[in-house]
Simulated assay, not measured.
Amino acid sequence: SEIILQQTRVAQGLPYYYAFVEAYPTVKDLALAPEEEVLRLWQGLGYYSRARNLHACAKNIWFDMGGVFPKTYDDLLKLKGVGSYTASAIASFAYGEVKAVVDGNVFRVLARYFGIETDIASSKAKKEFETLANQIIPEDQPGEFNQAMMDFGARLCTPKNPNCEFCPLKTSCFALTHSMVSDLPVKINKVKIRERHFHYYVITCGEKWVWKKRTSGDIWEGLHDFPQSESMADQQDKVLEIPLKKSKQLKPFPKNYRHILSHQRLNAVFSKVEIEEDNLADLENWCATEGFLLVEEKQIEYLAKPKLIVNFLNDQGI
C-alpha cells in the first residue's frame, strides 16, 4: 500500500491494492511472478518504476533474506525503491518505530504551523523538516501521529482554501495569526514541463499487430506501445519505409490524444498501416531486425501498456 500510494491518491490506488493482495497474498507469490504480469496488474496507475521496484523488493526478500521482511527503518532503506518516507511509514505503522513520515501534506502543516519559510524544493528542506517532525513525534504512538499528520494536511490544512475556521490549532498557527496561510509553504523552483509529440504507427497484418517493448531506462520500461516517431505530429518515420512499401496506405485515426505525466505532456496521433497478408514473411523479418513484436489481436489484452495506449485501444473496441 505504501508503494502504491507514492504520488497516488488513496481513491485511485485502493482498487490496485485489492487487486495486488488478491493476486499476490504473500511475498513469495510476488517474488515468483513474471514481471510482465506485475506490470499488467499495475497498468494505468503510472510511475511504473514503483511496480518494478516492488517486484525487485519481493525477490530480494524471498531469495536473499529468507522470506523475512525487514523490521527496522535502517533495514527498510536497503530495499530498492524504498526511501526515507516509505521506510518511515512502514517502520512506524507496522512495527511502532519512532520515525516521522514527511510527505507533501506534512511539509505544508509544519511550514504553516511553525512559520517555516525554507523553500520546500531546496536541498536543505527535507532534512530540516524531518528533523523537526522527529522532535515532536510521540514515542508511544508514532504510527497514529504520522497518520494524523498526513490526514490533517490532506483534509483540513489543504493547499488551497484550507478550513482554518474549524482548525483545532488555529490559535497557535503561525501562518494564520500572521496572515501567511497562502504564502506557506514556500516553493520557488517550479518543475519545467516538457511538451512532446508522438506519432504512433499501428501496423497490422491480418490479425497480427506490431508492438514495441520499451527498454531499460525508459519511463515506460517493460511496457508495450507501437512503433513511433517523436517529432512533428505529421512526420513519417523513416523506419517505416519497408512496411509502408508493403502496405495499402497510411490511414490517420481522427482523434488526437493527450496524456499528462509529472514532468511531461504527451501529444499523440495514431496512423494505421495495413500490410497485405501475402507479405507476412517480410514483415516478420522486418520486426526481427528492428526489435519489434508481432502479437495476435486476441493476445493484446495481456500486454502491459501505458494508459495512453489503453485509451486508444478502448476507443477502437480492442
Rank of each mutant, 00 (worst) to 15 (best):
D64F: 15
G66Q: 09
L39A: 03
W62Y: 15
W62N: 12
S49L: 05
C57K: 07
R52S: 02
F63M: 14
E37Q: 14
L39Q: 09
S49Q: 08
R50G: 06
M65L: 15
F63K: 11
G67D: 10
P70R: 09
A58R: 00
L41D: 10
R40Y: 06
F63H: 13
G66F: 13
F63D: 13
C57M: 10
A56L: 08
I61P: 04
C57P: 07
V68M: 11
E37V: 12
R40P: 01
R52Y: 01
R40G: 05
Q43G: 08
N60C: 14
F63W: 13
F63N: 15
C57S: 10
Q43L: 05
Y47R: 01
A51P: 07
D64E: 15
S49M: 04
L45C: 03
N60V: 14
M65H: 15
V38Y: 04
R40W: 03
W42T: 05
W42G: 00
A56N: 14
H55D: 11
R52T: 08
R50K: 11
D64V: 13
K59V: 05
F63V: 09
H55V: 12
A58W: 03
N53Q: 06
G67S: 11
Y47E: 05
A51F: 00
V38M: 06
Q43D: 08
G46D: 02
R40D: 05
S49I: 02
I61Q: 07
F69R: 09
G44T: 01
V68G: 07
W42M: 01
L39V: 05
V38F: 01
L39W: 06
L54E: 11
N53L: 01
P70C: 08
A56E: 09
M65Q: 14
V68H: 13
H55G: 12
W42C: 00
G44V: 06
W42E: 05
Q43T: 06
R50V: 08
A58E: 06
F63C: 13
G66Y: 14
M65V: 11
G67H: 12
E37P: 10
L54F: 11
E37F: 12
H55F: 08
K59G: 10
Q43R: 03
K59M: 07
L45R: 02
V38T: 05
E37Y: 10
R50D: 07
V38D: 06
L45Y: 04
R52N: 01
V38A: 00
A56Y: 00
A56P: 06
N60F: 15
V38Q: 01
M65F: 14
R50Y: 04
Y48L: 06
N60S: 15
L39P: 07
A56R: 10
Q43E: 09
S49N: 06
I61S: 04
I61H: 06
G44R: 03
L41G: 08
N53I: 00
G66E: 11
Q43N: 10
N53F: 01
Q43P: 00
E37A: 11
F69Y: 14
Q43A: 12
G67V: 14
